[in-house]
Nucleic acid binder design. Structure first.
Lengths: 159, 159
DNA sequence: GCAATTTGCATAAGGGCGCTATATAATCGT
DNA sequence: ACGATTATATAGCGCCCTTATGCAAATTGC
């Protein structure tokens, strides 16, 4: 077919995504929380309470690393440890309302920056991005989970 | 197609991009170099020799931070300091061939991972990403530099 | 049902990498 | 030429990760 050269196009997409990453990396967060911290907090927000080891695996940190991260979150009041009723060795980590608010604020700040950026683009480009939405979502889905994810990330904004 | 709600769509794009970032953050680099290091090295590769202060501003690091980063790069053999003929206070930092190779290897590793990911997507999604290419490039362009859909991303060499 | 093993988390020690404050050297303005 | 400015380096500190290890609870084997 008169199709494009697929490998070349895909490589171009890869490079473009790479630059998108670079752009977002530049636009730093002012929340005062590190990327790992925000990531863990976001995970707790979307998945509910998790054990330390579980979290460390999900976040690709070592278990001691996650322990200290949770220490920080606890000191900041964004998470708390709870006893696991079924296993007294284990700890269930839960996000607090303050933690949820932090996640929301972070996400909104980030989104605002991205939105500003998008709104500066020509309408055609904006449409193209919207058209690519399912693709972007599929791209970012969990490995092996390339399914339309129905994630209800809706937050009640404040409490 | 029916008219979409533009703000909602843009927000969705922002969220999707956010998740793309998260995905890429997970797929760590095995190069042993930190993100900032790779970023600075990439900058040196594309822009030629730069002064420390310039680099620190471009990379959004403090000047002392950039000094120590360059120390690391120099020790690793990926960059070197050269005297600035016009200003004996200043230093011109230049990427070495080994540094260029490192940048190339990093970029290729990253691209390979992204390519694998893309190739796992349904063809429709792949097409959508390709169609969104100009938009993605525009999105990631330098601030105030939103170029129309054309770019010569030619890589491959230092100065 | 008790000893040995395994599992879950915490603590300790160390390193990479960023920051602020400050020092040193070169340049500039007058 | 003297002070102010500019470019970089150094010192000291803190965050956040790592590996190694300790300890309590759960599990397994006998």
């Amino acid at each position: 077919m008169q199709t494009r050269d697929a490998p070349t196009d895909q490589l171009a997409v890869a490079q473009a995504l790479e630059r998108v990453i670079a752009w977002l990396r530049q636009s730093r967060e002012s929340s005062g929380l590190s990327a790992s911290t925000v990531s863990a907090l976001t995970r707790l927000d979307s998945r509910g309470s998790l054990r330390i080891t579980e979290l460390s695996e999900l976040e690709q940190l070592t278990q001691p690393g996650m322990t200290t991260l949770i220490n920080r979150l606890e000191e900041a009041g964004f998470a708390r440890r709870e006893a696991d009723p079924d296993d007294r060795r284990a700890v269930r980590v839960t996000i607090t309302p303050a933690g949820v608010e932090q996640v929301v604020r972070h996400r909104e700040g980030r989104a605002a920056r991205i939105l500003t950026r998008i709104s500066e683009l020509p309408p055609d480009d904006q449409d193209a991005l919207v058209a690519a939405l399912p693709a972007l979502r599929a791209f970012a889905a969990e490995p092996g989970n390339i399914q339309p994810s129905h994630d209800n990330n809706d937050r009640g904004s404040n409490s």
